[in-house]
Design a protein around this nucleic acid. Structure first.
Lengths: 194, 194
DNA sequence: CTCGAACATCTAGCACCGCTAGGATCTCGG
DNA sequence: CCGAGATCCTAGCGGTGCTAGATGTTCGAG
């Protein structure tokens, strides 16, 4: 029994090692450097053992993406903690989202550009995803004003996503990211007073 | 002289044929089906001739993307033509942008997700790009209200981009795309009255 | 009119990719 | 002690983007 347990524990550790290695490598050299061969070499196992843990390479980046959603959820929950009033809470959570994307661009790519296989819509989505969305939604609906709350949160989220995505693409004036975020917040909050 | 001219003309035609074939194939079967081998087979030439026209496969999708920016610019210029007043012009151009992305998702991907090599920022950007941006910017700055016009147009564009991107990712309630667009327009216009 | 340079094109192949079949090795219960 | 099952690796398949070198074709100078 104990031997079997140790095996399972070691297997779980190796599972995590794969995810961490993939993430580290992606952050160091970009996702295009993350290949199954390279990963296998780094964890000092042959390629087939990777496939005993994950069905495909995409499943590995999906696992990294899931870690990302978990971390994002944590930071979004933390952000509005000390806020005084709904407007400040909204500003805090939106700022935290933008900060997350700016600080972990590679992870953000995995979550939104690479891991297309992850289900999102409604019920079949993983918990990590729903929790991240909920953590963003909570302070946002508080300032939805006269608008439909579900639509409002979706619009805020998509706008935020577009902002952080294009900011990093080099297609905007690079040094003015903060100004854009401030204006976006202003515009979203202006709706409250309509 | 005339022979040489004919050669050049045929070469230019083949250049266009490559771009059109890549675009058609991508629209039919997705960008992952667009390989150099497949392209070569379809235009009935060997692979190296593709490389006599384009430096890399990425350069081919960049050429498709450039076509996309040209078309987008055209539609954005056309949209506000019959508008009465700046608000209607703004609504029209924003709607045209969303309609373009919804109608040509494959092309939109080439423009914003795949063709990362295309320079955008400021001066070194291709004309097609600057014109598309300008066509969007013209009606948008008219409703920028008290905000900095340059920042306002960037925010509108990024928000719009995020909206159309995530709408197609299946991570939003699929049937409510119009509601989201309407709300986004409302929020952006609310700034005018601040 | 001829012949060598320049051009156009193709065949074949390199190094890599994701992924997997099949065999070797090790572990462990009976 | 032995056979079954788990574990892991070697080797390879069919694909990718890209290119070196050979082959044919065209054209202008002598």
């Amino acid at each position: 029994m104990t031997v079997h347990d140790r095996r399972e524990r070691e297997r779980a550790e190796r599972h995590q090692l794969i995810i961490r290695t993939a993430r580290d490598l992606a952050e160091d050299e970009g996702w295009e450097a993350v290949t199954v061969r390279r990963l296998a070499e780094m964890i000092e196992y042959s390629q087939p053992v990777l496939y005993s843990h994950f069905a495909s390479k995409d499943a590995i980046v999906a696992a990294v993406a899931l870690e990302g959603f978990e971390e994002l959820a944590g930071e979004l929950r933390e952000a509005p903690r000390d806020a005084e009033g709904p407007v400040e809470a909204f500003t805090a959570v939106v700022g935290a989202y933008a900060a997350f994307a700016a600080a972990r661009p590679t992870l953000y790519d995995a979550m939104f550009t690479l891991a297309t296989g992850l289900p999102f819509g409604r019920s079949e989505a993983p918990d990590e995803l729903k929790e991240a969305f909920a953590a963003l939604a909570a302070p946002v609906v508080e300032v939805s004003g006269p608008h439909d709350p579900d639509t409002f949160i979706e619009v805020v989220w998509t706008a935020l996503h577009g902002l952080v995505t294009l900011t990093r693409s080099g297609r905007l004036r690079a040094d003015l990211a903060e100004d854009r975020l401030d204006l976006l917040i202003t515009l979203m909050l202006a709706g409250e007073r309509v």
